[in-house]
Deep mutational scan, measured.
Amino acid sequence: MADQLTEEQIAEFKEAFSLFDKDGDGTITTKELGTVMRSLGQNPTEAELQDMINEVDADGNGTIDFPEFLTMMARKMKDTDSEEEIREAFRVFDKDGNGYISAAELRHVMTNLGEKLTDEEVDEMIREADIDGDGQVNYEEFVQMMTAK
């Protein structure tokens, strides 16, 4: 299944994987998964984290390695993001709930994920998604960005 991913997608997933893999040992533990999910405003229980890991832990060693992570991402993409997942993601970014993602809100979430971005990089990300040019990202623009192939 992971063989249907483009090189660009694999590179993006590698970057995402390293955000989860806090200690850089090449595997994601339940603790690391929990840290990232909490930084995104989720509050999973230990059991939920274990279930999430077990779902993709092909070799049964209790952690997720990069090939397992790729399989999980490929699977998720095949079920292409349901509207509800996209709306949920939008809410994570839209901290003040005004229906727009500002540069400050984007920077806040990315920083929580451990991504240190310059102001230019954040502005560039907003510009790429900002179709109507108002300097922020509304829900429609967010959907376009998330579903762009």
Rank of each mutant, 00 (worst) to 15 (best):
A74H: 07
M1C: 07
T111A: 12
S82L: 12
F90G: 08
E88S: 06
V122E: 04
S18L: 14
K76W: 14
A103V: 09
G41P: 05
M146K: 05
T118W: 02
A74G: 14
R127C: 01
D51Q: 08
T147W: 07
L49E: 15
T29N: 01
K14Y: 03
T118I: 13
Q9H: 11
T30R: 15
F17L: 12
D57R: 15
L70N: 15
E141G: 12
T71P: 14
A103D: 11
G99I: 00
E84F: 09
T6D: 04
L33E: 00
E7Y: 05
D134N: 13
E8T: 08
Q144S: 14
T30G: 06
Q9C: 12
I28L: 11
K31I: 12
L49C: 00
D21V: 13
G135H: 05
D130A: 03
G99H: 05
E124H: 05
K76R: 12
G99T: 04
L19E: 07
D65H: 03
G114L: 06
F17W: 02
T71Q: 09
A11P: 02
D59L: 12
D65S: 14
D25W: 07
I28D: 15
N98F: 11
L113E: 03
S18V: 09
L113M: 01
A11F: 07
A11K: 13
K76C: 15
M125T: 09
D79A: 13
G62S: 12
E15F: 01
K31W: 10
R75L: 15
D51E: 10
Y100M: 06
L33H: 07
F93G: 06
E141C: 06
M37K: 11
R75A: 11
T35L: 04
T6Q: 08
E32H: 15
K95Q: 13
L117S: 12
G26H: 03
E68F: 01
M52I: 12
I53E: 01
E8D: 11
V109W: 09
E85D: 07
T45I: 09
K31F: 07
L117I: 12
E121R: 10
E15H: 10
T63G: 11
N54G: 02
F13V: 14
S102W: 15
K14D: 13
L106P: 00
S39T: 11
G114I: 07
T27S: 11
L70P: 00
D21T: 00
K78A: 03
E32V: 13
T147E: 08
D130N: 11
Q9E: 09
M72V: 14
I53A: 15
G34L: 11
M145E: 05
L19F: 03
K22Q: 12
T71K: 13
T35K: 01
A89R: 00
G41F: 15
N54K: 09
E55W: 13
A129L: 04
A16I: 14
M125A: 07
I101K: 00
E46M: 15
Q4C: 07
F93I: 03
D132A: 10
G133I: 00
P44Y: 06
L33W: 00
T80C: 04
I64S: 10
M125N: 00
G24M: 10
E85H: 04
G26N: 02
G60H: 15
I64R: 05
R87V: 15
K76F: 07
Q50R: 14
A148P: 07
A47H: 10
E84T: 01
N61D: 11
F69H: 03
A89W: 06
T35G: 03
V36P: 01
S39C: 10
K116N: 12
N98L: 07
M72W: 11
D65L: 06
D79K: 09
G41S: 11
V143C: 08
G62H: 14
Y139Q: 01
E105R: 05
R91L: 11
M52D: 15
Y100Q: 15
L117H: 01
K22R: 14
M37I: 12
D134M: 09
I101D: 11
E55A: 09
E141N: 01
L33N: 00
N61T: 03
G26D: 11
I28G: 01
Q9V: 03
V137P: 11
L5P: 11
K149A: 10
T27V: 07
F20A: 01
L49Y: 15
E83M: 07
M77P: 08
T71I: 13
V92P: 07
S82E: 07
T6G: 06
E84V: 13
N43C: 07
D134R: 04
E140I: 11
M73Q: 06
M73A: 13
G133Y: 15
L49A: 14
I28H: 04
D21I: 01
R75T: 02
D23C: 01
G60P: 05
I10V: 11
I86Q: 04
K76A: 14
I53D: 05
E85P: 00
T30F: 07
E32D: 13
D23F: 01
D51K: 03
G60V: 03
A47S: 12
F66D: 01
M110N: 02
D65G: 13
V36N: 00
S39E: 03
A16H: 02
R87D: 00
E120K: 08
A11R: 01
Q9G: 09
F90T: 06
D65R: 01
M125G: 07
Q9W: 15
F17C: 00
M146H: 07
N61Q: 05
R127E: 01
M145W: 08
K116R: 13
I28R: 13
D94T: 03
V56F: 03
Q50F: 06
V143H: 04
E46P: 15
Y139C: 10
L70Y: 10
D59R: 10
E55R: 14
D59T: 15
E128S: 00
G41W: 10
M73G: 15
G62V: 10
A47W: 10
Y139S: 04
N98H: 10
I101Y: 05
A148M: 07
T27A: 13
E85F: 02
E48Q: 04
E140M: 13
E140T: 05
A148H: 07
Q136G: 01
E83L: 11
A16P: 03
E46C: 01
A129N: 02
E105W: 09
E12H: 10
D51A: 11
T27N: 13
D134I: 02
A89Y: 04
E7I: 15
Q42D: 01
F66S: 11
I126D: 06
G97S: 11
I101N: 01
L40F: 02
T63D: 03
E7Q: 11
K76M: 03
D132S: 15
D81R: 12
G114W: 06
D81M: 06
V56W: 05
R107E: 06
Q4A: 04
E12T: 04
N61A: 14
G99M: 05
A89T: 07
A58K: 01
S82F: 02
Y139H: 12
T71C: 05
D23Q: 05
L70W: 12
M110I: 09
T118D: 13
N43R: 15
L5C: 05
I126F: 09
M52S: 07
G41N: 02
V109C: 09
A2C: 06
D96Q: 15
I53L: 15
M1F: 08
E85T: 11
D65Q: 10
M72F: 14
M110P: 03
E120T: 02
A11Y: 00
A129V: 12
L70K: 13
M146Y: 08
M52V: 11
G26L: 06
A148K: 07
K116Q: 14
I131Y: 11
E8H: 08
L33C: 00
D25K: 02
E84W: 03
E105V: 14
L106G: 06
D96N: 13
L117M: 00
F69R: 01
I28Q: 00
M1T: 09
V143E: 14
L40R: 07
L113R: 01
V122H: 06
D23Y: 11
D132H: 01
Q50A: 05
P44S: 11
L106E: 06
E120A: 15
A58N: 03
I10F: 10
T63A: 11
D130V: 12
E141M: 05
E124G: 12
